[in-house]
């Protein structure tokens, strides 16, 4: 849930400073060694044949030594930067594990509770039906979570290979988007009157229908989670010349300027005490971004401020107008791997 302030930042900086001090002293040592030896060499030079030692080799030795040390410090800095990044990811990953464990245990404990209740007590058939319904909802939740983790790893490979199943086709944009949104809305039992789709996108696009649905599922899920009441959702479709735009707006609690930058990062979760929901894995929006980018598009978020809602803007390429080669490749791969047995991609 919460992302704790990194208490280790201080130690990272300390390590960095120490590393710099070490290389600086190494440098000084090198110069000192060179200067002292240079004097020694001069003395030796006086005694021995003067032609034995030439001044240029000394300068070459000095410069090459310095270059070596500078390279050393550069590589140290690079290692430090990557180490820092890695530590950050590890911290987020720990958080993710904690969140996933929580998300797995909650439905599991509810299922266990109902099973034990039915074993222990006489339950009326009405109640039994209610409990079974709740249990099925929980198994569904477990299934969704496990799927999202599994598909994410396959999507992350970013390679258009056999491992990621492809089902890209050319669609009429307006029709497919309205269809997918409608399906998502139904899945969440979200009242249709709270969803307004405006504008139209009369163009063609190349889309994997299953992946697109995951995008809208996540956006709708977030809109519900992060609104104190049942939210109003507005979806604006705008066709452009080469790209078309989808603006998905809710009227929830909004996202602060600071968090807008990080919201699509993997495992990132916003800790906001005013948030009506504290559950989640930090994967949803990361996944959304990955999918949009896989489709050759972009996603960004904006918010008018606290409690004024958020707007996600998705830009996708229009078929035959932009990213022609990439789109054709997606279509070709879909045809090529069509024979793979279909897996259920629904989130």
């Amino acid at each position: 849930m919460t992302l704790k302030k990194p208490s280790t930042v201080f130690y990272h900086v300390l390590i960095f400073i120490i590393a710099q001090l070490i290389w600086f002293s190494l440098l000084s040592l090198w110069i000192y060694w060179y200067v002292t030896n240079y004097l020694l060499l001069l003395k030796v030079e006086d005694k021995l044949a003067p032609q034995m030692i030439s001044g240029t080799t000394n300068i070459v030795a000095l410069i090459s030594g310095l270059v070596l040390l500078i390279l050393l410090s550069l590589s140290m800095s690079i290692i430090f930067i990557y180490l820092n990044r890695q530590l950050n990811v590890t911290r987020l990953y720990d958080n993710f594990i904690a969140n996933v464990t929580h998300e797995l245990k909650s439905p599991l404990s509810s299922i266990q509770l109902y099973l034990e209740t039915m074993q222990k007590r006489e339950v009326s058939s009405d109640k039994k039906q209610e409990f079974l319904g709740l249990m099925l909802k929980d198994t569904d939740r477990l299934n969704q979570l496990i799927n999202s983790i599994l598909y994410l790893s396959s999507l992350e490979q970013r390679k258009l290979t056999r491992k990621v199943s492809h089902d890209y086709h050319i669609f009429d944009t307006d029709t497919i988007i309205r269809e997918v949104i409608q399906e998502s809305v139904q899945e969440f039992n979200f009242p249709a009157k709270n969803v307004a789709i405006e504008g139209n996108a009369s163009c063609q696009c190349v889309i994997d229908r299953n992946w697109l649905k995951i995008v809208f599922n996540n956006l709708i899920d977030n809109a519900i989670k992060y609104s104190p009441k049942l939210p109003q959702i507005k979806i604006q479709l705008n066709p452009g010349k080469r790209y078309f735009h989808i603006e998905f707006s809710d009227y929830g609690i909004g996202i602060s300027q600071k968090d807008q930058k990080k919201i699509f990062n993997k495992f990132h979760r916003i800790y906001n005490p005013e948030s009506p929901n504290v559950k989640g894995t930090g994967l949803g929006l990361y996944w959304v971004r990955e999918i949009v980018e896989y489709h050759g598009g972009k996603i960004s978020v904006s918010s008018a401020g606290k409690n004024l809602g958020s707007t996600f803007k998705i830009t996708l390429p229009i078929y035959q107008e932009s990213k022609k080669r990439y789109m054709n490749r997606l279509l070709r791969l879909s045809r090529k791997y069509q024979t793979i047995p279909e897996t259920d991609h629904e989130q």
Binding site: S106, P107, S109, S110, L113, Y114, T117, R121, K127, E130, F131, L134, M135, K137, D138, P276, V278, K279
Partner: peptide, 26 residues
């Protein structure tokens, strides 16, 4: 308890044991 499904089951069981239960979700 903010998990609806768990809370409904708990409320049912605690009531069955004779306790008077008030459930809140935040």
């Amino acid at each position: 308890e903010d998990e609806d499904s768990l809370a409904i089951g708990l409320e049912f069981n605690l009531s069955a044991e004779g306790y008077q239960v008030t459930w809140v979700n935040n």
